[in-house]
Amino acid sequence: MITVGAVGDLILDEPDPEFFLAPAAPVLRAMDLAIGHIEVPHSTTAVQQSTDVPAPPADPAALKAVAGAGFAVATLAGNHVLDAGAGGLADTIAYSRAAGMETTGAGPDLAQARRPAIVERGGLRIGVLSYNCVGPRESWATSRKPGCAYVHVLTHYELDHASPGGPPKIYTFADPDSLDAMAEDVRSLRSEADVVLVALHKGVGHTPVEVAMYERPVARAAIDAGADAVFSHHPHIMRGIEVHRGRPIFHGLGNFATVTHALTPGAGVGAEELQAWAERRTKLYGFAPDPDMPFFPFHPESRNTVIAFCRFDGTGLREAGFVPCWIDDQGRPVPVGGTPEGETVTKYVEDITRGARLNGRFTTRGTEVLVDLTEGVPS
Results as ranks from 00 to 15, higher is better:
Phe250Trp: 14
Gly360Glu: 05
Gly376Gln: 09
Ser43Met: 00
Pro17Ala: 02
Ala276Phe: 03
Glu39Trp: 06
Thr264Trp: 10
Ala149Ile: 10
Leu76Phe: 09
Leu129Trp: 09
Leu358Met: 15
His156Gly: 07
Gly78Asn: 15
Pro294Gly: 12
Tyr348Ser: 10
Cys310Glu: 13
Leu110Ile: 13
Val47Glu: 13
Gly147Leu: 11
Pro265Met: 12
Ala61Gly: 06
Ile352Lys: 03
Pro15Phe: 06
Leu154Glu: 14
Ala288Ser: 15
Val53Lys: 06
Gly147Tyr: 04
Phe231Glu: 06
Val230Asn: 08
Leu89Asn: 05
Val81Trp: 05
Asn359Thr: 12
Arg361Thr: 01
Ser232Thr: 09
Val259Leu: 10
Ala276Met: 10
Ala181Glu: 14
Ala320Val: 08
Ala65His: 02
Gly8His: 04
Thr260Ile: 08
Ala262Val: 10
Ala113Lys: 04
Val198Ile: 06
His236Glu: 04
Pro60His: 06
Glu18Gly: 14
Thr315Glu: 15
His299Asp: 11
Ala25Arg: 10
Phe298Val: 02
Pro146Lys: 00
Phe256Arg: 00
Thr305Phe: 11
Ala320Gly: 02
Val336Tyr: 05
Ala22Glu: 15
Glu158His: 08
His161Lys: 12
Pro108Asn: 13
Gly286His: 04
Thr374Asn: 11
Gly360Met: 01
Val196Gly: 02
Gly286Glu: 01
Leu154Arg: 15
His236Ile: 09
His80Tyr: 14
Thr92Phe: 08
Val371Met: 05
His233Ile: 07
Val4Ile: 15
Thr258Tyr: 14
Ile126Tyr: 01
Val53Thr: 15
Arg190His: 05
Met182His: 07
Cys133Ala: 13
Pro176Leu: 08
Ser188Asp: 13
Val306Ser: 03
Ala117Lys: 03
Leu274Ala: 09
Thr207Asp: 01
Thr75Lys: 05
Val153Asn: 00
Val53Asp: 08
Thr92Ala: 07
Ala162Pro: 02
Ile170His: 08
Leu189Tyr: 04
Lys64Asp: 07
Asp224Cys: 03
Gly252Ser: 05
Pro116His: 00
Leu317Cys: 08
Ala181Lys: 11
Leu253Val: 05
Leu370Ser: 03
Gly123Val: 14
Ser302Glu: 02
